[in-house]
Amino acid sequence: MTGPDQGATEPTLAVDGLKTHFFTKAGVVKAVDGVSLHVNPGEILGLVGESGSGKSITGFSILGLIDPPGRIVEGSIRYKGRELTTASYEELRSLRGDRIAMIFQDPMMTLNPVLRVDTQMIETVRVHHRVSKAEARERARAALAEVGIPSPESRLKNYPHELSGGMRQRVAIAIAFINKPDLIIADEPTTALDVTIQAQILAEAQALCARTGTAMIWITHDLAVVSSLADRIAVMYAGRVVETGRTADVVNAPRHPYTRGLINSVPSHNARGSRLAQIPGMTPSLMNLPKGCAFRTRCSQAIDACLEAPPIREIGPGREVRCFNPVAVAQSATVEATP
């Protein structure tokens, strides 16, 4: 499914002006500071950012997994029109694992080390649906087969430690898909895996979304991974979305200087052996962000206006940029390979 048609369908998830702050002794950490995004049914949204950009906290906020000292202070999260920020614990509980599921970076965060795979999968089904144990077990077996696990019947009897890293992540994905959810939030699920295994997992996830119509938010720091997987991309920097758009548009013609910097610093975009185009400086501390645009101090295009925080502006259909002085289209095309 390519090209989201906004008007026709209601988005599976719409996040609007979300602010999640952490009230620590040292001060308020604005981990997520005004994030708006949406995903349509069957669509894969790539949420890209470096460590500390707030991409994971955005994912956790959607599922209501923020613990004190963190708190959602503002904004709305609507799942199929239902407001989640004010939902009761029971309401959230009935959604989590059934309608909205999460895949974590470390599958051992999802899997209980002392329970067999079948026990955990049957529980996931039976908590949400009134089905017999045999029926639940059959669904578990089918879910394992669907993510490409060979001989699922015998894998069901394994404990998590008996499986390899790639297998564990597949089991975690199978658990996320088992109740045929409307939305899956995947938080760096392939970062810890080898490239050949990563390619397998990406293939499974892509096929499953296309087959089941599940919407997915794929959180990652790796633009290369989402560029071949996602329909749309949202780039985050210091707690805010700085650029969104269709994958091809963002990758081909990035408009925010940060997005362009990220793409240009990837080795394959530079002539072999040449110096890489690098973004100077380092990610600022969330406690002590520069005034105005948070990227201002590292930006080659900063102007006086950047001392004010730029609002996010629509620059095309479904294409938004948070920048006063965006990269011009002509020069935004990825750097020419200088000898």
Binding site: V195, T196, I197, Q198, V251, I263
Partner: peptide, 20 residues
């Protein structure tokens, strides 16, 4: 073949089978 590269179009993955 498996190296993820920044590409402009969605691609279909043809992973090698099996595990290490």
């Amino acid at each position: 073949a498996e190296v993820p590269r920044i590409s402009t179009s969605k691609r279909t993955f043809h992973p090698i089978k099996g595990e290490i």
